[in-house]
Every structure is written in structure tokens, then in C-alpha cells.
Write a protein that binds this DNA or RNA. Structure first.
Length: 271
DNA sequence: ACTGGCTCCTGAGGGC
DNA sequence: TGCCCTCAGGAGCCAG
């Protein structure tokens, strides 16, 4: 799925086209996503003006009318702006039709994504309230990671992918940050030094920023608001490169399974 | 409290 | 060509 850089790419592409725009209708073609799409969304949002589009971790917060629409892209989701008359494909589950006859269209073949609604502060919503700090904002650094890792025996990669520890990091960027920091992904989180967590936090931020600049990573599904893929894939050092030589030392990159996820690393560079 | 495993769903790719 | 198996960018939930 879209991890933080892909969601941020989507947000940046959509925001100028949505903010200040009025919603003409909401069309729900398939309401069974990760959770049921709330009933009567059309009644809640028809005629409402989009006040803003924010991001928290991998969630998009579309503020409109009397509340906020919470959007999650799951593993395979994408949001695009299309002419409202464009015939929907089989996995185009929802449209927000805008006053200018454009439509924000949610496409998600695997349906692990979500559309929720709240009238309260969206940051207090149960799905968002427990999220850890944003990795690109203050409040996230090596000291924070080190503190959260204390006494824990889970693989350090699983710690990075735990949204309660840090928001928005998934399988790709966890693997990339660990490679760049020279840390073995299976190492117990509590046995990584403070100094190495400083490096890890720094490398993670670099990788996320560089990916945002490149428009994110497209493996198969991801496209931005205008339907274009992201270009960071060619900058990935280890993700998806098992069996190939390490870009730093030439050793063959190995693959293992951690917390059910494929994990590529360099057995020489990462300890 | 922690941890690992299972689960939701569709589609692509590899092996035979 | 076709069938079957495994795996894929997430993350909530459950049992041990």
C-alpha cells in the first residue's frame, strides 16, 4: 500500500483541486471495504464545501461540511481526479462528485482500504488516536525510538512498522531505512543502541523525503491524483532486490520473513 | 504487557 | 493453455 510518501503525494496532488470546492454528490458503488462505508454519506456531504485535505500517517483527512471524511488506501488503493462522466471500472468503489463535474474516485482492488466519517476532531477518532508521531515532524527522533524499544524483543523492523511507534512507515521504507542505517532487520528492537537509533531515525526521514520528491513508489497499483506512477522505485536499494548484489558492497542480498512480511537485507552491511 | 499468527480481498506471477 | 500455489504497499484482532 501506499505508505506515507504515496499518501502525501496523493494529498499534494488533490488538495489544490479540492479545497474550497463544493461537493455535488457522493456515489457509493461498493460499501464493503475494510469497514462498511457509512450510510447516508451523500446526505451528509451533498452541498458541503471542502475545507481542507490533511494527512495523518497513512490516513487522509478530508474536512468538509459538519465533519471529516477519513480515507485509507489499504494495500492497493488510489485516489484520482477524473471527469465525473468517466465510466467506473470494477474496483472504483466511491466517487465524490464535485460542482465542476470532476470527481474524486477511489479505486481499490483488494478493498483493504477504508472510508470513515466523524463529526468530532478526527485526530481523536479511534483509528487515529493511538498513532505515534509523524516521522517528518518534531517529536520523532532516535531518542523516541530508543525509548519505545526498551525491553522489547520484536524485530526492529516490526517496531518501525508499528503505527503506534511511528506513523506511516510500511514494509518498503522500513527495509530501506534499516539498510541505510546498517541495522539488521531481525535484530531485537531492545538491543539496538541509542546511537544507532539516531542514525535510523535520520535515514528514515531522508528516505521518506526523497520518495515524496519523486512522487512515491509505484510497484503495481499506485498512481497519483492525475494517474501517474511515482518514480522512487528505481532508487530502492534493497526492497524487491533479493538475490541481487548489494549496491554498497556487492554481497548477494538475502530475503527472510519477519512478522509475516518479506524482508530483504544485506548480510554484510546490516548487523 | 508482548508476541506472533491469522484475517479480510483480488490479482499477478511462477512452477508444473 | 491451464491449474494451483504463493505472495503483495496494511493493520485489527486474538490466543498463548
Amino acid at each position: 500500500m501506499p505508505e506515507l510518501p504515496e499518501v502525501e503525494t496523493t494529498r499534494r496532488g488533490l488538495a489544490p483541486h479540492l479545497e474550497g470546492r463544493r461537493i455535488r454528490a457522493v456515489v457509493v458503488r461498493r460499501s464493503r471495504l475494510r469497514w462498511p462505508v457509512p450510510a447516508r454519506l451523500d446526505r451528509r456531504l451533498r452541498g458541503a464545501t471542502v475545507r481542507g485535505l490533511r494527512r495523518r500517517g497513512k490516513w487522509l483527512l478530508l474536512e468538509a461540511g459538519s465533519g471529516t471524511l477519513l480515507l485509507h488506501l489499504g494495500m492497493s488503493g488510489s485516489l484520482r481526479l477524473v471527469p465525473a462522466a468517466t465510466p467506473p471500472g470494477p474496483h472504483d468503489h466511491l466517487d465524490l462528485v464535485l460542482e465542476d463535474d470532476g470527481a474524486l474516485r477511489l479505486h481499490d482492488p483488494r478493498r483493504f482500504g477504508a472510508v470513515l466519517w466523524t463529526r468530532d476532531d478526527p485526530l481523536d477518532h479511534p483509528r487515529l488516536a493511538g498513532l505515534g508521531p509523524e516521522p517528518l515532524e518534531s517529536g520523532f527522533d532516535g531518542a523516541w525510538l530508543h525509548a519505545r524499544a526498551r525491553g522489547r524483543r520484536i524485530p526492529v523492523k516490526a517496531l518501525l512498522m508499528d503505527g503506534r511507534v511511528v506513523a506511516g512507515v510500511g514494509n518498503i521504507y522500513a527495509a530501506e531505512a534499516l539498510f541505510r542505517a546498517g541495522i539488521h532487520p531481525a535484530r531485537a528492537a531492545g538491543r539496538v543502541s541509542r546511537r544507532r537509533y539516531d542514525a535510523l531515525a535520520g535515514r528514515l526521514r531522508e528516505v521518506l523525503r526523497a520518495s515524496i520528491r519523486a512522487g512515491g513508489t509505484s510497484l503495481r497499483d499506485f498512481v497519483d491524483a492525475r494517474g501517474r506512477p511515482g518514480w522512487y522505485r528505481q532508487r530502492l536499494q534493497v526492497y524487491g532486490r533479493g538475490g541481487q548484489p548489494c549496491p554498497a558492497c556487492g554481497t548477494v542480498l538475502r530475503e527472510l520473513r519477519l512478522a509475516g512480511r518479506g524482508t530483504v537485507y544485506c548480510p554484510r552491511c546490516q548487523r
